[in-house]
Design a protein around this nucleic acid. Sequence first.
DNA 1: TTGAAAGCGCTAACAT
DNA 2: ATGTTAGCGCTTTCAA
Lengths: 362, 362
Amino acid sequence: MRGKPTLRDVAERAGCSITTASNILQGRSHLYREDTAQRVLSAAQELGYRPNSVARSLARRRTAAIGVVLDPSHARITHNLYAHDVLDGILSYLEPRDYDIRLITPRTHDAAAVWRRIDNGSIDGAILIAPVIGSPLLEWQHYSSLPVVAVGSTLPDEYRLPQIDIDNDAAMASLVEWVIQQGHRAIGFIKGHPLHWSAHQRERAFRRVMTVRGVPLREEWILQGDYGPESGAIAALQLLRQKELPTAVIAANDEMAIGFIQQCRAMEVAVPEVLSVAGFDDTYWAQRLGLQLTTVQHDRYQIGYLAAQMLLHHIEATGEHLPSRILIPGTVVVRQTVAPAPALASVPTASASILTDGGSQR
Amino acid sequence: MRGKPTLRDVAERAGCSITTASNILQGRSHLYREDTAQRVLSAAQELGYRPNSVARSLARRRTAAIGVVLDPSHARITHNLYAHDVLDGILSYLEPRDYDIRLITPRTHDAAAVWRRIDNGSIDGAILIAPVIGSPLLEWQHYSSLPVVAVGSTLPDEYRLPQIDIDNDAAMASLVEWVIQQGHRAIGFIKGHPLHWSAHQRERAFRRVMTVRGVPLREEWILQGDYGPESGAIAALQLLRQKELPTAVIAANDEMAIGFIQQCRAMEVAVPEVLSVAGFDDTYWAQRLGLQLTTVQHDRYQIGYLAAQMLLHHIEATGEHLPSRILIPGTVVVRQTVAPAPALASVPTASASILTDGGSQR
DNA sequence: TTGAAAGCGCTAACAT
DNA sequence: ATGTTAGCGCTTTCAA
């Protein structure tokens, strides 16, 4: 025996066949005599035998691995707070079930090349993280064979993919309702990255609620951002040089809200005294940086967890592919960056709470 | 032909042997007649053939995959800013070289179980992310066979592992020197997590420079933290209730500095007017949150990149295992949370710069 | 220029 | 209770 010990080595040492060794090491000892099992087990132990998972995968036609695929547009994982939380949820489901995770970060937009990396037999299924509009990940010819679920993007129905996402529409609606309840009638909005479905969904919800509540929509207060903090700062610059200002601004995510607030403060516009600002997502780092951002919390960890669970079901249930869609509700978290509208400053407000949920508005 | 097309299907369709198809698809067309190569290529194309990477790995005895292993102590990847940056660097090196990444996050401290997940033939090598003191990842019996490099922990020499890390000692020394140059003679310190080697290295450098410069060390100003933001806040609480206060505090990382500053401001202690605070690491999110934290920048992305590079060299160079150690220098970044010591407030200071490097002090 | 044959290390019918 | 056999899909000598 040379190199790493194989099953054959174990079998030889235990004086039995390879099959026997295989069965016993897979926990089917009850099929054999006590002492045979013992001999195999100790042989394996003594040799420091570890089953070769590649050979096992080939024989079983199952890899016990799933792929987590980042859209090529978010090439750097670092700045993607969303992905971190989801990944944690995925790991927490998969790790105890002995599934491996392959992190796939294609850098190209060529769909065939991307899918060659994904669907080459090395994984049993894949979770697509926030595929954007026009992403190669969404070319159906490719994902039609491998079990796949998408998270972080609520796709239009024609993409027949199981998907899990936050309910952007309902959550943003809650937030807007709540801001309006604070007495604001002059409300601005910072839009997210135009390639993300969520950006459109959040904007649409904003516009709808404003309209339904009869609050005037002023297009000059609706600014384009890209979900990054810098774009929030730029939006602040653009907004603050206007003659008329809103009393509140809702950003489509926390990062932009943070950039926006920094810029406001740099220009000596007090938040929330002069201008209220709300974010969306309740990201971990925003919480700990003393901003006390009023925002919408939703459980990204759970999204990852559920996505992994759903995927395993699809993999194990050898049959049907029910393209389901799960939307996780969000909750408005009242902290300190949204104040009652100036004219109504004396009206009683919802009690603000720090690090505990504010009123859920669903 | 049923199911996914295999090499055999391609060969049949092209009317040649499996060997021929294999060779041609691996780019050895020059061995064959022009038209044979063409037939194989188009057959593959038409069938949508994709080589099965599991079978290929088994035959080649190479997986073209490497493992990125998180120490069980940092089970949740979310809050580990360090890991994100390093991971990005790793990905950027490995992705273009067609290596796959397996993300391994053992939840147990049983070394044998941990290594069974890592070294089971599914990867060609592993990068250990910030193994802590006593980590199962460091049990040498296991890592002795698989090529492995450690990052984020500068291990004592007895761990014979190639490793890449920031030069904690020199970088912290620079920072302390710089703070002393600002005229501070009353300096506190917040220690990092006691299971991290870096925490000890940073503390040791602090003590050494203080001693060398003849600045008195006051143990009551040296507080235990754990690298988390909350521990910084707690340290502030403990420090601020003392009768005598330092004029500056150095935290062993940014997160603690942030927590510390939040708490100071909450207690109306002005930073940096009353108390200067420096961090360490220059984390991405700290930079964008308007704190203007004076800290030490170092290139974690590069650490990941180099680690991947080094690992591939070890894998490819079938021979020697030179347990090298690379230490990346850090740079003091002067922003706005450290002011000259009150008594010296009129002395000229190093020009503060925002988002550009301050003076390097090495 | 091409192909036959022997594996890689393991699993899983199917005997016995 | 145990072993034989035939793969899994590919690579790679080696021979033709």
